[in-house]
Nucleic acid binder design. Structure first.
Lengths: 275, 275
DNA sequence: TCCATAATGGAATTTTTATTCGATATTCTG
DNA sequence: CAGAATATCGAATAAAAATTCCATTATGGA
């Protein structure tokens, strides 16, 4: 692999393009670096050779070789490009925000994305405010003490359920996803015992099946943690702890961003508590 | 002028406030520095002691004294704050999150939730600005023109896939979720034709099955829209349009908040376009 | 399989950068 | 206006960071 010697003035975007283009022809470690630079350009801009190398999982010298392979004299020179991007981007930040808010923009797809992004952010911030830490702690305690965590969420809540299940499993917490494949959701949940726990997730309009299965589990003495969107949720009376997540909506559509974030935090907290 | 004794954690805005407040009581050279830091925060974040000193018209040591006057151990510590401002690019939202934070919050569950919330918000805002509107528009066109939209996403991408599928279906767009129930994912996707479209969702480490199925569909002439997290994704070359969603991570965990938001926006945009 | 070539790891070295400190200047105070 | 307290300067020193170099390991071609 010979160094590219040409080096007229380049900007960040050009470099980015070159990195993408040469990705497949680079040796293993350099590929690793390439991927890291694209995934975390801010880190590259602000970090030191040592810190970046560590995060990318390579030796410091590899970074210098990487930079040289792209025609720079050393890593510092390449880093300049990454830094200039941060500088240039900053000043027009407010302008861009405004641009995103101007009327003509609101109608198109970017306007749509903007609105949804905004309500997602609002939901997440809202959850931060509204959630009682004590409640979350009790939920974590309950789940950490459980033998197996059963996760139930259908229809709109299903993505959250699958995500929680996936995260728990990844973190080594025994988890079962109660789904309706084969129509056996009820029976599946019936396997739960008082030594397990059930996380029931449901939003208005509450899916009847979720409520029924949760009731049944509750009656069997299974501790229930509910994630739901109102104090009037039918899940509330059936659960040992219930967490309220009010997703903001735009034009009647509610994102699940806040619920997803809560699910991840719960999973990590439970895994930590177990250690 | 006595040094202010060590503070608890501060953020950039706080420091900025302090600098403004004390500007008039500061000695001459330090005032010069104060003004420079307020006027060119980017320089302060990215420059070296020597370069900043020169631009501010003071001696390098003055910068250290300035930092110490504000309770930092040295200039580098102060610079950290200026750098962190560049990293979390969106002070608006960061500030709002900070407001939700209570003093002794950093550890424990609420700290965890806070951190995850922060990275979710960063992801969402990041996607909103990084995503090329033209690309999104092409994706929407493709999907709106499709007879049936097939949605594929396994493992970590599965929640996003289910959500997109649910949203499309709710909005009256014919949608099929390609899942592995019964191990038939490949065959399921084979039903897709050139008049349909496939949305393939995958993040590092890319699930091999997702890549394979996407390739197969691509070869059959099915238009593919990929949602993925890097230009190096194996899905990129197989797709007509690919949308990059870089989820920020905290402690190695990535939320799906940005992907979920994008999924919802896509679904709504496609439904609108069809009318 | 062996050899030539390229890539990698990691310690040693060089360069750059931050910080300290004492001499000098300036600014307050009585 | 003297004298004390503070601030500033700038060279000297310490710390941190980038880069080089070479021994070792992997890769691809005959």
């Amino acid at each position: 692999m010979e160094p590219v010697t040409v080096k007229q003035q380049r900007d960040f975007e050009t470099l980015r393009g070159e990195i993408i283009a040469r990705r497949d022809t680079l040796p293993k470690r350099l590929t690793q670096v390439a991927e890291f630079t694209l995934r975390s350009p801010d880190e590259v801009a602000l970090g030191t050779v040592a810190s970046i190398a560590e995060q990318a999982g390579v030796q410091p010298s590899t970074l210098i070789r990487f930079a040289q392979a792209f025609g720079f004299s050393g890593f510092s020179e390449l880093q300049e490009l990454f830094r200039s991007r941060l500088k240039d981007r900053w000043p027009d930040y407010s302008a861009r925000l405004k641009a995103a808010e101007t009327a003509d923009d609101e109608s198109g797809i970017s306007g749509l994305l903007h609105r949804f992004a905004e309500s997602s952010v609002n939901s997440i911030v809202g959850v931060q405010h509204a959630l009682d830490v004590k409640l979350v702690e009790r939920a974590v305690d309950l789940l950490a003490a459980a033998d197996t965590v059963h996760v139930l969420g259908l229809r709109r809540a299903f993505p959250v359920a699958t995500y929680l299940h996936y995260s728990l499993a990844k973190l080594g917490v025994k988890s079962v996803l109660v789904d309706q494949v084969g129509g056996l959701a009820g029976e599946q949940a019936a396997f739960a015992t008082a030594r397990d726990a059930l996380v029931a997730i449901s939003f208005t309009p509450y899916t009847p099946a979720t409520v029924e299965i949760t009731s049944a589990a509750h009656e069997l003495g299974v501790p229930v943690v509910a994630i739901t969107d109102s104090p009037f949720s039918p899940l509330a009376p059936k659960s040992a702890v219930w967490l309220e997540v009010a997703e903001a909506d735009f034009a009647g559509f509610r994102s699940l961003a806040a619920s997803m974030t809560l699910a991840l935090a719960l999973a990590v907290a439970v895994a930590e508590r177990r250690r």
